[in-house]
Design a binder for these strands. Sequence first.
DNA 1: ACGAGCGGGACAGCCCGTTGTT
DNA 2: AACAACGGGCTGTCCCGCTCGT
Lengths: 191, 191, 191, 191
Amino acid sequence: LVVPRRSSARQDAITAAARLFDRQGYHGTGIAQILAESGAPRGSFYFHFPGGKGELAVEAVRVAAAEVEHLLRAAAARHPRPGPMVRSVARALAQWLERSDYAEGCAVTAIALGAHRDDQLRSACRAAYASWQCLLAEHLVAAGVERDRAAALASLVVASLEGAVVISRTRRDPTALTEAADQLTPLFGPA
Amino acid sequence: LVVPRRSSARQDAITAAARLFDRQGYHGTGIAQILAESGAPRGSFYFHFPGGKGELAVEAVRVAAAEVEHLLRAAAARHPRPGPMVRSVARALAQWLERSDYAEGCAVTAIALGAHRDDQLRSACRAAYASWQCLLAEHLVAAGVERDRAAALASLVVASLEGAVVISRTRRDPTALTEAADQLTPLFGPA
Amino acid sequence: LVVPRRSSARQDAITAAARLFDRQGYHGTGIAQILAESGAPRGSFYFHFPGGKGELAVEAVRVAAAEVEHLLRAAAARHPRPGPMVRSVARALAQWLERSDYAEGCAVTAIALGAHRDDQLRSACRAAYASWQCLLAEHLVAAGVERDRAAALASLVVASLEGAVVISRTRRDPTALTEAADQLTPLFGPA
Amino acid sequence: LVVPRRSSARQDAITAAARLFDRQGYHGTGIAQILAESGAPRGSFYFHFPGGKGELAVEAVRVAAAEVEHLLRAAAARHPRPGPMVRSVARALAQWLERSDYAEGCAVTAIALGAHRDDQLRSACRAAYASWQCLLAEHLVAAGVERDRAAALASLVVASLEGAVVISRTRRDPTALTEAADQLTPLFGPA
DNA sequence: ACGAGCGGGACAGCCCGTTGTT
DNA sequence: AACAACGGGCTGTCCCGCTCGT
């Protein structure tokens, strides 16, 4: 007996959109390309996404945010001390950049910059940043950082990595990421 | 002796382009809008910019980079110690964001993310980041930071501010910027 | 004994279609909107209307024609003399226009003009005009007008009211209708 | 010496648009078809018509209105008495219908019904009706009809012919037009 | 009778880059 | 150095007709 299995078209389109928005930006990516690369059918696009491109982008932001959340959680589980944890995240991001030949960075930033006029989209990006900051802050607190300082420090870490990804991509060179993580380390407490 | 005073059309277009690319992204901004808002004539656009939109964007990146360089130099002149200097820069960026109601952030980042396929454009963005990092590193050296560490630290500062601007814009709230500068301060040496 | 009470979906769709074709024209109205506004289910549309949009429009024409027929019959019953009868019809049409803020006029005309390529549709419109003319002619004959002249006169009345509705709608002003009825009156015989 | 002779593309598009809007209605006619049939270039459409399809339709209404104005003036010049004048106009309209095999009627009505949401378009149609009514009213006055009645009578004539054109087209038979003109004649005064 | 989904084509609008002429 | 005009491709959006499975 086969479970009715709803079409995968919607999810396929979201995945492809996250990748393409990341590579080419929000305005630089057309729906046609997203559908072509995802193999999703054209006719049901506005059935799956009544809100059009914007709604698709909101979903793409959620997917991209969840991937990074997963990365952060995995690093936190492996490294109890914040210094190694942040360096591990930076290394993972650097590898991600290199593996795509610096074509893919962070879909959230790409969409945040390309479409900050759309309030729902902006809101989704804001939620992504907030979740990352929250995860980092909790890890810092667990490592003994005082709660208020942990929040501000987590904000700095998110911003640093975010900015370092953009710069690394522009340079086609991951040193900005590793330097950022290395230089941040002393802030997390005594070695 | 009369200076020929070339037409301002070219410069007007560049200025408008920097503002609009910042606000709407590279692909989100059309040449028609740039010409309309700058008042530059349509007919001579490809006389002034034979390279088309890409060449215009390169010039816009240079202009935007120079503005930030000016900001950095001014802050360095006023604040000999790196902590206050970086905090002053963050405050200035925050004011810039607020003044435009978070519509304008950094044209370099907007273009870097929107058009990183164009090598000349990417090169111009890379040069912008490099010049900022260089200015910051020299200021750190002058304040007594060892040269190698100063370069890495400057890289972190640039990345942090860059990322904080993106996040602040997304949040419509400047705290990410001020938090970043505050948390970075201890890295610059003993109070 | 329970009357099977067939689903109202079909009738709902026809009613909504008549209203929307009237407001927006045949090509300006999509099936999706008709279904949305009527609350009729999407899945069974082609069960109820195997002929698609065209068949739905034919039914809409019939409904709209019947409404006008009803209006004509009621006016004829109340006013034995043709002059008052036609003026009463014009007033009713004017009220109908005003009540919808001149958004709705006559669905038959809207469809006749928008889709006169479809023979079945054209046929339905022709039947509507014929039935109105017939009703009017009989009323004129009953009032003493000679039979041949009654037919031609009824044709003029239908055309006048038809045209006056279009003009009134364009003007957002019912005077074209009342003027038409007033000026026609002398043709119906001695006061 | 050659007069710079601006491109005929704009006028070509307007002429084709008038014909096609008449045949297929406003919403039933696409810009692509208008450009294809007129031979006008695609790239400069929004140069010639910044207001898009709506602006094109406004011009088409003006052209169509002017053609009818010309017809009315010619008939008025040839027939000093209103009866023959109106009958001559009706004959001309009937011939026009027959010549196009009842595919073309009156572009103004087609657009008035298809796009009465667009205020500028509605305004252009209103102006067309007003100009026809005015021409007719002046002719009636010149023939001795009292001024106030002439205006109302002219309104009736315009509405009748308008409606008769729609009905004739639906019937593919010009009798509605000739009947209308014949039956109107007694209103214009003693034979 | 009906919801979900597909297929592919059309819509209006706008894009960037190039002509000719002046 | 600026103009009117072109060329044709692409955008997001929406369309109608249909087939599934229930």
